[in-house]
Design a protein around this nucleic acid. Sequence first.
DNA 1: TAGATTGTTAATCGATTAACAATC
DNA 2: TAGATTGTTAATCGATTAACAATC
Lengths: 212, 212
Amino acid sequence: MKFSKNQLERYPIYLKYFNELEDDGQEYVSSPSIAAKLGFSEEQVRKDLQAISNEQGKPKKGRSVRSLIRDIETFLGYKDETKAVLIGVGHLGGALLNYPAFKNMGLAIVAGLDSDKNKIGTSVGGIEIYSPDKLKEILKKNDAKIVVIAVPATHAQRVADEAIASGAKAIWNFAPAHLEVEENIVVENVNLASSLAVLSHRLNLAVAKERK
Amino acid sequence: MKFSKNQLERYPIYLKYFNELEDDGQEYVSSPSIAAKLGFSEEQVRKDLQAISNEQGKPKKGRSVRSLIRDIETFLGYKDETKAVLIGVGHLGGALLNYPAFKNMGLAIVAGLDSDKNKIGTSVGGIEIYSPDKLKEILKKNDAKIVVIAVPATHAQRVADEAIASGAKAIWNFAPAHLEVEENIVVENVNLASSLAVLSHRLNLAVAKERK
DNA sequence: TAGATTGTTAATCGATTAACAATC
DNA sequence: TAGATTGTTAATCGATTAACAATC
């Protein structure tokens, strides 16, 4: 089974919703109701859930909320802790170190790195800050494969190169920069400019439509 | 011409690259070279650029870097300032108020709102913080249509409802929550859980491949 | 039973890729 | 001129949607 980027992005959205349903004490949920709530088509919901669930849905009832939560969490790897190192403890990096939701997603940021001597040795969000030259050591010691990059765009490529040289296999890039990496390295960009481009374009369409 | 989400997301990536080329003094750029650099196909690059550019490309040379920059900036609306109000001046909200790149994208956050009395009246990243009950007034005074939501997930829906009731037409949602809004309201989510899901899945595939 | 919902197979749609003549 | 690159039209591919029998 192959999962497209769009499809993968939907699973955390389902999971969020199912957790709310469970908190409300709801035992079963049907594809049509999920579709209506989340704004997807019901066929898509069925396909998505079939692809990752072990338990069959029950005609007339739907699927067990609890088993869906378990199956999505397993699929997304929320059950086993994945370790990561963050580079760049500026405003954004600091916010990421303080982001409480990561631990529910199985992501543990084990260290923050920053070249600012005033930051080294302090801790942010309960996570210790080290000098960037400790990267290799820290990755190795923790068997961490993910590096989160939150440095200014001008430094992002250099930092990425260093991360890869130090053994990183995946880069979660928050810097507004395109990174060139060898093909066996995974890069996922959180590109606010791209997100804003989508927002602006849709807003313009909506405004134009209203004027009509 | 209709623009897909994916396509819209590519334009800021092109723009970033073209700005680098211009800084290097390069006058023309060809689709094949762009494709090689950014990891897109050359057909896609040609289609994307044709869709938004006024100037034709020149066989054997490519397209004028300067005119591409101008055309993408115009298309993305970077030339005229769009105003927004941010709600939730926590770690993430504070980072957004300090994010310098927004002004290059034509986005001006004119105010931050937070219910914390210790924050009200202070300024973060040069932007003043107000009480949330000032939302309507601030949106109106600035003719702002975009509300940036950076509150905890549990408050996000309520804040979104208030924003819409106060006249917001678009919501840039950084809270890890699915928002239900009327259909004429534009919502763009920056969902770190979704982004991480893509990263993790690809990393798992890459690791599995390596083991083979 | 009737009806809602499932799972599966087929059809559609849209985005991406390929092909190729035109051009500097 | 030869060759690289363009713009455009056609083909392919993959994701989404539709259709429908099976089932509780």
